[in-house]
Design a protein around this nucleic acid. Structure first.
Lengths: 344, 344
DNA sequence: TGTTAGCACTCGCATTCGCCGAGTGCTAAC
DNA sequence: GTTAGCACTCGGCGAATGCGAGTGCTAACA
């Protein structure tokens, strides 16, 4: 266990370093207005903290910086949940006060404002598709042999897939298929479609439809829709370039490459675990992020987490501020989304 | 006019520099196997070329590099349309041989393979929406007061918008609206909807529908769909980081910021002018691109350009290769798209 | 007249060196 | 337990230096 003086010093080091990005020396700390100790005393304490693995020394004659373990201790025990400053709060309020119709637009706006406020990179995962129930299925013929299958959920998501069919299907055939699908699948939660309804619907098709093959093609295509995949929005990618730890092109490149593609960007956020998560450095699963911190929170509809929102930055991150902001955002998203999507 | 010897030298300088990214000296050139001249002679010629503004000298005692004007001359007069090497050709063929159903997927694949092959950044603009005709309109009620309006075009595009309506619209009301819209708008080219049909349809609505207000809301929303906006796919953003001219973070940052957002990324490509365009450095309109080259080509359906595909790199770009590849790709896209979309 | 060899000169770049200053650990005194 | 003092370490910075690639000019040559 740490003495309260050690806690004070560790705290000060983390906060100084987060602000300045430069190793913190004993002299500088002794001038800190909450610490009334001489530099020498502080040096002794720092030596102890280093021995405990909470501080690192980049080289012999430089100040100390927090180690990843140090950040972890700070986050778990020392961090003060400072109130959000008025300006930031105003910016946040403005986003969520607007009555935006489209869910996707809310997500997008969130991502933009988050990266502006934090100056880090933001990742927002749209509400997962299978949070919704099927509202309607439609088939629209294009040229001979191709049909667009459309699926509408009660969350307002519209998914479309093109399906290849026999060349000689008639509008009538399509109407029959659509009819069957709508009767059988309406109000079915997407999460259960593949597991609980595929069997039943395909059998019903075999029994009642001439165009069994083609109907099955549609059903297959609908079931192939990845339920995990809501869209992933990445904002403020270039913000990380402003951080001194990423001024080296070779260091950022793999990171940017990671963020460039939706699939890999999505993996940055931990799997939907409810609540707020802080992943410091090597705590991240993705190897590219060993020198980054990801703070993520989920948002929920009716108590079920349906998406997540996260901030990616260097381990030298303003933890208190980001945690506070994400807290606000995840609550706001939960509220807004519930308003839109709940029990519809 | 340049002597053929000057052309030979300019050509060699461009090609050497493109390969090595280092200023080309007279000695190096004299060892070039097509140039049987002494270094001194070459120096004289280079001095002349510099006077003409075709070459630059980064500093007194370094070799020469092509000026933007030099590149321009090279592209217009000297560049050999070398054949694509077998490997590259194979990779390209493979993309376009696949029978991909979805147009968007073709575009996406194109973008990926292009950036892999060129090692530059690729921008592909999906076929503009208004290249298509309206195939079907649907309305799906969500919660009370919101309805999803869906528009399907014969290009297979599906656009959806949420529309706010009176709380008490009945499914019957919606059916009437849908009915009217489908009757009036089917087969109408999107490009003409707003200008030619808005008036007519809204009058018809006023005449025959009780729910005039709500119907109009739908129509307005449909007309608000931006016809220019097909999606913009950007690929290989991180490739530019590998280019020595962009090793400086402060130089790339604005460029990456430009590419990050779809709207601004789209502006990188010149407006759909048919044929292949090479924009060198300051020839680009976007100020961020003053030290870049953009090579772009359009693809067409039935002779009408509907989208474009481009490559963004440093002015020190492998012009011959990229031009050749883009030529191939734009032709292939035209062919494939026409197959999918033409006269449907 | 065009081409080439030779030479002095320029200039960027990498290396070295020495210095400075911030910061440390240790010891001894308070 | 705390603090002052002191010797030591080490990275960073600027000046000095040497190297090498490349140039322009001149004079000789075909």
């Amino acid at each position: 266990m740490l003495t309260s003086r050690q806690k004070l010093i560790l705290s000060a080091i983390v906060e100084d370093y987060v602000r300045s990005a430069e190793p913190v020396g004993s002299r500088a700390l002794s001038k800190h207005n909450e610490i009334h100790l001489s530099a020498a005393t502080i040096r002794n304490e720092m030596a102890d903290l280093e021995e405990m693995g909470l501080l690192d020394q980049p080289h012999m004659s430089a100040g100390r910086i927090p180690s990843q373990k140090g950040y972890r201790f700070y986050v778990d025990n020392l961090m003060m949940r400072a109130e959000i400053d008025a300006e930031t709060l105003a910016a946040l309020r403005e986003v969520f006060v607007q009555r935006m119709t489209e869910v996707e637009r809310i997500i997008q706006q969130t991502s933009i404002v988050l990266s502006q406020l934090t100056q880090y990179t933001t990742i927002v995962k749209g509400p997962r598709l299978d949070a919704g129930r099927i509202k309607r299925v439609e088939l629209v013929p294009l040229v001979r042999g191709t049909v667009v299958a459309i699926l509408v959920t009660d969350t307002g998501h519209v998914v479309s897939r093109q399906v290849l069919m026999s060349e000689d299907v008639t509008p009538d055939d399509l109407a029959q298929i659509v009819n069957l699908l709508n009767t059988k699948l309406r109000e079915v939660p997407l999460s259960r479609m593949r597991s609980h309804f595929y069997q039943e619907v395909s059998e019903e098709m075999a029994r009642t439809l001439e165009r069994y093959e083609d109907a099955l093609a549609v059903l297959d295509e609908l079931c192939a829709v990845d339920p995990e995949s809501g869209r992933v929005y990445v904002g403020g990618t270039t913000n990380i370039l402003a951080q001194p730890e990423f001024r080296d092109v070779d260091k950022v490149r793999p990171l940017l490459a990671l963020l460039e593609r939706e699939e890999t960007a999505g993996q940055v956020l931990p799997k939907h675990q409810p609540g707020l998560q802080v992943r410091i450095g090597r705590e991240n699963e993705v190897p590219m992020l060993q020198e980054c911190t990801v703070i993520a929170a989920t948002y929920a509809v009716d108590g079920v987490p349906v998406g997540s929102v996260g901030v990616l930055g260097p381990t030298r991150m303003n933890y208190a501020r980001v945690v506070r902001i994400l807290d606000y955002v995840s609550n706001a998203l939960t509220r807004v989304m519930t308003e839109r999507l709940s029990g519809a």
